[in-house]
Design a protein around this nucleic acid. Sequence first.
DNA 1: ATTTATAAAACAAGCGTTTGATTAAGTGGC
DNA 2: GCCACTTAATCAAACGCTTGTTTTATAAAT
Lengths: 235, 235
Amino acid sequence: MNVVVAQEPSTAARGRPGGDESRARMIAASARMFAERSFDGVSVREIANAADVNVSAVSYHFGGKRGLYIAALEQLLEEMRPVGGPVIERIVAVMADGAPSVSALRDVACFVVRHILTKMLSGDLEPWVTQTVLREFQNPTTDYRPMLDERVLPLHKAMGKLTAASLGTEVDAPSTVLAAHGVMGQIMVFAAARRVVQEELGWSEIEPAQLETIIEAAIRGVLGALGLKSDPEAC
Amino acid sequence: MNVVVAQEPSTAARGRPGGDESRARMIAASARMFAERSFDGVSVREIANAADVNVSAVSYHFGGKRGLYIAALEQLLEEMRPVGGPVIERIVAVMADGAPSVSALRDVACFVVRHILTKMLSGDLEPWVTQTVLREFQNPTTDYRPMLDERVLPLHKAMGKLTAASLGTEVDAPSTVLAAHGVMGQIMVFAAARRVVQEELGWSEIEPAQLETIIEAAIRGVLGALGLKSDPEAC
DNA sequence: ATTTATAAAACAAGCGTTTGATTAAGTGGC
DNA sequence: GCCACTTAATCAAACGCTTGTTTTATAAAT
């Protein structure tokens, strides 16, 4: 996780410096631990050790363990922005000019699959970031509500528009919403099952060649599910 | 979760009775709690309260919290048997007579989708049972290894056979394995996202009519992804 | 002198497990 | 049939440890 330390404005701050760095280290260390072991599986002392701060720093800077947890989620939310943003923009753009052609729909569908899988499976995002998203998707909680509201559902809305245009159904029809979920399922399953896939195919890492194989398989499936000509080589 | 209490043989046991009932109640209460809040999020005292036993009963009967945890997982494993078993049998059966026809492949694919979704989304399995499976699929752990080895991977192997026959690819080719994952993703996404789907479509419960709508959408998507004629009404 | 941050120590609460006593059953001798 | 003994299960209390938070002192800056 890349954590940006806020640059102070030119007016000098008073007091002992270093709080920004400490807060950043605590957020970075804890975000990963919370993602991997969830809230109760991580102790304040472990976070403090990993972040190289005193154990009381968590209460001092964040008001307590839960405050740090919320701060870490907000950081994750920010990290997720480049995943769905471009997809939504591309889908909205292709719809802007009236009913898009089959060719245009295929191009968008190909882009969607390629972009999301590249973001999720290459080094851009750590695996546990996508794990956190998937867990929230599966079991929505109050804590992660913004993740759902601001990242997942808008992406789903956009996918619904692409699906409606491809299948010739109404955007808000249940069959469209469900088909869009099916399409997302075909993409997200590779994030969810990345370790299982690696084990089954004997891949120690997902290198660019393997990523391309996954993208191609996913494109074929998604085009097929959308009723578009499923020939990924044309992408 | 239906927990069966072992019937004692005709020879009477010595000692105070009731241990079987207490163990069953502890397993049932804890399985759900572990699924919802994972191991560290549940305390022995909470389990004891929910199961109406003394707190020391966990250590007495199971050797401790972790022993109970393992026992609960084994129970879940048993619960999952009727989900994948019939699917594997059906796929194996259709392959037994050489290359199946497209019509036969469609029938099997329809059955697979209908069976799995019916098991997962109707009252047959509690939502948190499927949540546990999905969590293990996403983040395989030592604890859940049998769930993966004995339930999930065999089902995936069978799905790979169906996929290879449908797409005309080699069973063990990476593209087949990945396409099979895509197909499973299209089905499992409805278990994973059941709460999100309910919220989006305004469904308070997934009644039989809604379940049928989901099944139909999933069948259409799966048939499309498998390159089979995607007309679910023919199922 | 003030403000901000850090550190060590302590606190109260909860944790999982153990201990010793009690209860509820069955068994065998008389 | 009654009683003593054995076995299995349950109970309340206690234990040692870990938890998140607070307190007080110290350090580093303006």
